[in-house]
Simulated assay, not measured.
Amino acid sequence: MKHTAFFGDGEKTFDLPAEQILELERKTGTGVGTIYSRTMTGQFQFGDIIEVIRLGLIGGGTSPKEAQALVDAYARPTPIIEAFQLAADILEARWSGKVEAPAPDAQDELRQAAATGDASAILRARIAEAYAEDYAA
Rank of each mutant, 00 (worst) to 15 (best):
H3A: 08
A5L: 03
F6D: 01
F7K: 01
G8P: 07
E11P: 08
E11C: 03
T13F: 02
E19W: 06
E19Q: 13
Q20M: 06
Q20I: 00
L22A: 14
E25I: 07
R26F: 13
R26G: 02
K27L: 04
T28W: 01
Y36C: 06
Y36K: 10
S37C: 03
S37A: 12
R38I: 00
T41C: 11
G42E: 12
Q45V: 10
F46C: 04
G47V: 07
D48S: 05
I50A: 05
E51N: 13
I53F: 06
I53Y: 06
L55K: 01
G56E: 00
G56P: 00
G59Q: 04
S63R: 04
S63V: 01
K65D: 15
K65R: 15
A67E: 05
A69R: 11
V71A: 02
P79N: 14
A83W: 04
L91S: 05
L91Q: 05
L91Y: 09
E92I: 12
R94M: 04
R94V: 03
K98I: 13
K98E: 12
V99H: 10
A101M: 14
P104N: 11
Q107H: 08
T116Y: 06
D118A: 09
A119S: 12
S120L: 14
L123H: 13
R124H: 10
R124W: 05
A125M: 09
A125G: 05
R126P: 01
E129N: 08
A132F: 09
A132V: 08
E133V: 15
Y135M: 07
A137I: 07
A137C: 07
